[in-house]
């Protein structure tokens, strides 16, 4: 088959892949409930988390100055036993996720207003936006 026929066919296939992926991402997007966040399979109220967990101010290696609630306190508040023995998968509403260690959680905050996790010691790639859930793995 000629290159002139194959190339447009590949281009169309890629655009179709992109279109189907967009439909999939949009249809599987989890709705953000502003008042709650799911941690360790429990739906926790943000207002209760704010009362029980420390406020922290951090200056990440990636730059800037941020304030939010301590991620390790949130995990402890959710009742996870032996938190240092687990990993934590942070999920965004669009399916983007990052798995981090307990040591990273100790160096991280959750900005409630923007629903973003920020870590002092990790690249910005790990700053998951529109967080809907933190899974304990």
């Amino acid at each position: 088959m000629k290159v002139e026929r194959i190339v447009p066919a590949i281009a169309v296939c890629l655009l179709l892949l992109g279109a189907f992926s967009t439909v999939y991402v949009e249809s599987s997007k989890e709705k953000i409930i502003q008042d709650t966040i799911k941690i360790n399979d429990k739906e926790l109220e943000i207002s209760k988390i704010m009362k029980s967990c420390r406020d922290m101010s951090i200056e990440p290696e990636a730059g800037g100055n941020y304030e939010g609630i301590s991620l390790s306190d949130m995990i402890n508040f959710s009742g996870v036993k032996n938190p240092a023995e687990h990993r934590y998968k942070i999920l965004g509403s669009d399916g983007y996720s990052k798995t981090v260690e307990w040591n990273d959680m100790n160096n991280g905050i959750f900005d409630i207003e923007k629903r973003i996790v920020i870590f002092t010691n990790l690249p910005k790639q790990f700053w998951v936006k529109d967080v809907v859930e933190i899974k304990v793995v």
Binding site: G18, S28, S97, T99, D104
Partner: peptide, 29 residues
Amino acid sequence: TPVVASAPLYLSDLAGVMPVIFSSATIAG
């Protein structure tokens, strides 16, 4: 990035984000 920054790398995270990559790549295409 995780390799260079000595950060945790889990390929399961990458698998989960593939639909997002393929979706946003449509704009680039």
